[in-house]
Amino acid sequence: MLKKILKVIFALIFLLLIGVYIAFRTFTAPKSDADILKAYTKSVEKPILTKERFEGLDFRKIAIQKDTTLPTLVFVHGTIGSINDFSKYLSDSVLQSKANMIAYDRIGYNYDDKNSVRESIAFERNMLEYIIKDLDKNKVILVGYSYGGPIALSVKEKVRKIILLAPAVHSSVEPMPWMLNFYKWSLTRWLVPKVWKEASKEKLSHREDLKNFEQTWQETPNKVVDIHGTTDWIVPYENSKMLEEQFPKDQFELVDVPNAGHGLVWSNFGFIKEELLKNLH
C-alpha cells in the first residue's frame, strides 16, 4: 500500500512539474501581433504596430504618435523582454495625453524570431539611434529597463533626458543566476525555451561587454534619472549607487524605490508612471 501511495505521489509531482514547465514556456514565449494588441482593447488611443528593418534584421515596433508638440517616451526592454513589457504604460490614458510613446522588440526577442541576439550594447545603441533618427531629439526621453539601461545610457546624441529603470551598468555587480546552468549544460539545454536561450546568451556575455562602457558612462551629454528598487537582487541596487558616483550632482538623480525588486516596472507601476510624468516637463 505504501509503495502504491508513493507511486501516486511521485506521478502527481511529475505531472505538476510538467504542467509548470508548459505554463512557464507558454507564458514567457514572445506574443503574436494579435496577442500584443489585445492589451490595448480598452485603450483610448490605439497604437500602431509595424514591422521594421535594421541592418537586414526584422523587428516589431509599437507606437502612439499623435501630437508632434508632445515629448516622446522611447522604451527599451531588458533581458528577457519585449514590447509587451510596457503595454500598461502605452495604454495609460494620462500618459497618452502627455506624451507620444514607442516600444520595440530587440533582435532575438521578436515573435517567431529566426535571428539571434546580437550580444552587443554597441549594436543595440545603433539600433535605438536608428529608431529615433526622425524624431525631434529635444523631445525624446529614452527609458531603459534592466539591460535596456546601458543601451539607453550609451547613446551619446543629445536628447531631452535618459530615464533608467533598474539598469545593469556595472560588471563587478553583475550576478550570474544558477539557472543559467540549464543553458550552459548540454544535457539540459534542450529544456530551455528558445527565447530563454537567447536571454541566456545575452546574459552570459553582458558582464564582459559592460567593461567596454562602464568607465565612460559619465560622457553622456544627457541628464539622467535612475530609478531602482533597494531590494533588487537580479540587478543589484549597487549598480545605481556606483553610477551615481560617476556623475556630477546636477546631471544625475537617483530615485530609490524602497523594498522594490527587479519587477518594479510592473509591481510599482503607479510610482514609475508618476516619475515619468514628472520628467516630461
Rank of each mutant, 00 (worst) to 15 (best):
E45M: 09
A152N: 02
Y130T: 06
W178G: 12
A11P: 03
V195N: 11
D112H: 12
S186L: 10
T68N: 13
I272P: 11
K42S: 14
F271V: 12
P236V: 00
T216E: 12
Q251F: 00
V8N: 05
Y21P: 00
E214P: 09
T79V: 15
P30L: 04
K88E: 10
L17H: 02
L95R: 01
K156V: 04
F75K: 09
W196G: 08
R160A: 14
A152T: 07
S93K: 13
V235I: 15
R125S: 12
V44G: 09
E157F: 04
L6Y: 06
E244Q: 15
S171A: 13
G56P: 09
A99N: 01
L164F: 06
K3V: 15
K241R: 15
S154C: 08
K241S: 14
I131Q: 01
V159K: 00
W266Y: 14
G108V: 08
L276V: 02
L264G: 06
H228G: 08
L12E: 08
M242Y: 05
I48Q: 14
F10H: 07
P258W: 06
M176W: 01
P167T: 06
K31C: 09
P47W: 01
S116H: 13
T41G: 02
S200W: 00
D35C: 03
G261N: 09
S205D: 13
P175L: 01
V195L: 12
G144H: 05
V169N: 04
N259L: 15
L180M: 11
V44E: 14
M179Q: 07
L49P: 01
W266S: 12
K38G: 04
S186C: 03
I141N: 07
R189E: 13
W190V: 11
S32G: 11
D85V: 03
N212Y: 13
D232L: 06
E55S: 14
I234Q: 09
G56F: 02
L142R: 03
N239S: 11
L90M: 15
T69D: 07
L254G: 00
F269I: 07
A168R: 07
D112V: 13
Y104S: 02
K66T: 12
G56I: 02
P258Q: 06
L210H: 10
L264S: 02
K51W: 03
Q215A: 14
K7D: 00
F27H: 01
I80S: 09
Q246R: 02
Y183M: 09
S186H: 07
E52Y: 04
E157G: 09
E275A: 06
V8D: 05
K137M: 12
V255W: 09
E274Q: 15
